[in-house]
């Protein structure tokens, strides 16, 4: 495998990691707020904050890792995306800042503050929408580039069926992934009341997820025929596997069994879809301006980054394992017996 392909695979994997952990977080915020206004907060909110409190900061790092990594491996992305995304990027940062800090204010400082919880819940749905803009513009057609200026065509983005279908997909999948995970977490805690509510959420958000995915395919065909053909022609099997995993996960949740396996299947569903999408997007990182081969940083830097990356993983994996062992797989902690 050459360095640039290795680089983008690593980065894509981290973005996938962010997709999963951030979805759980974003969705949880929404469910916590929804629980509060429908007076079910005493059932689900403690469970949610027991999971989120120790990990929310780690979630954030996945994202930082991705954007630092992509500038490192593919410096020209900084130039194009940086110039183009000034407004949408800043909005995403502001939303992330509100969300992160108000989570801490609410959870460690003033508990039960409804405004904090509202900000936390609302931003959870707006952030995926604003972040997905970056993926949308990677399909091309939303930038005009001349010699010394990159301009973001806001109007094109706001009137594009493709961009709206991506937004719809990002929001419903956040809610679906989160609900599937929290159902499993509640089940581990032997908290059947919370589990029932969360299971209903999972089932509720399952059909929209698949409808939105199909919508993305249809509008992609209109927007970027080349990408669509590659996705359907070469990588159809990835999307087929994704669909199978989705079906199996939904079935398990419906039958109230093996919530853990169901969540793993949901992860696989998004894994196949996300990597199928990513692979068929190549060799373009930003269609048609940035390709994988042309934009990779020089070889010395790429090698150094890969070495640091491997050393970093050697340090991270045991640490992440410890974190999960203490807060995800420790039944006593999940049940709230340990503080």
């Amino acid at each position: 495998m050459n360095l640039e392909l290795l680089g983008i695979t690593v980065l894509w994997t981290f973005l996938y990691g962010y997709l999963i952990v951030a979805s759980i977080d974003f969705g949880a915020g929404f469910f916590a707020y929804y629980g509060k206004i429908t007076n079910k907060d005493h059932i689900i909110n403690n469970l949610i904050s027991r999971y989120l409190s120790p990990v929310w900061e780690v979630t954030n790092v996945f994202f930082v890792f991705f954007f630092v990594g992509i500038v490192g491996f593919f410096p020209s992305t900084a130039y194009y995306y940086g110039t183009a995304l000034l407004i949408p990027g800043s909005i995403a940062i502001i939303l992330l800042a509100i969300r992160g800090s108000f989570y801490a204010f609410g959870n460690y400082g003033s508990r039960d503050n409804i405004i904090y919880l509202f900000l936390y819940g609302a931003t959870g749905l707006l952030i995926p929408a604003s972040l997905s803009t970056a993926l949308t513009i990677s399909e091309g057609g939303f930038l005009s580039v001349d010699d010394n200026k990159v301009t973001f065509l806001t109007k094109e983005l706001l009137t594009s069926p493709y961009s709206w279908s991506v937004v719809a997909l990002s929001i419903v999948s956040v809610l679906f992934i989160s609900a599937a995970f929290l159902t499993y977490y509640a089940d581990r805690a032997n908290d059947s009341e919370a589990r029932n509510i969360l299971r209903r959420f999972s089932l509720f958000w399952s059909p929209p997820t698949i409808i939105a995915s199909l919508l993305v395919f249809v509008s992609l065909r209109e927007h970027n025929q080349l990408h669509f053909d590659k996705a359907v022609g070469e990588y159809w099997w990835m999307f087929a596997l994704s669909l199978i995993c989705f079906g199996a996960a939904s079935l398990l949740i419906y039958q109230k069994q093996k919530f853990g396996t169901a969540f793993v299947l949901v992860m696989l569903q998004f894994f196949f879809a996300f990597f199928g999408y990513g692979a068929s997007h190549l060799p373009y990182i930003l269609y048609p301006y940035i390709t994988l081969q042309e934009s990779v940083t020089n070889e010395t830097m790429a090698t150094a980054l890969v070495i640091v990356f491997i050393l970093g993983l050697l340090m991270l994996i045991p640490s992440l394992y410890l974190l999960m062992k203490l807060f995800l797989f420790d039944a006593d902690y999940i049940k709230g017996n340990k503080k």
Partner: peptide, 29 residues
């Protein structure tokens, strides 16, 4: 600037996120 920095100084930027990652995990614990 970041285009140049990406080519030359990406290494410590990248390492910084690892250090941040490490801190975030253990602070949570």
């Amino acid at each position: 600037f970041m285009e140049v920095a990406g080519q030359v100084i990406a290494l410590p930027l990248f390492m910084e996120t690892f250090a941040f990652f490490f801190e975030a995990i253990f602070l949570g614990i």
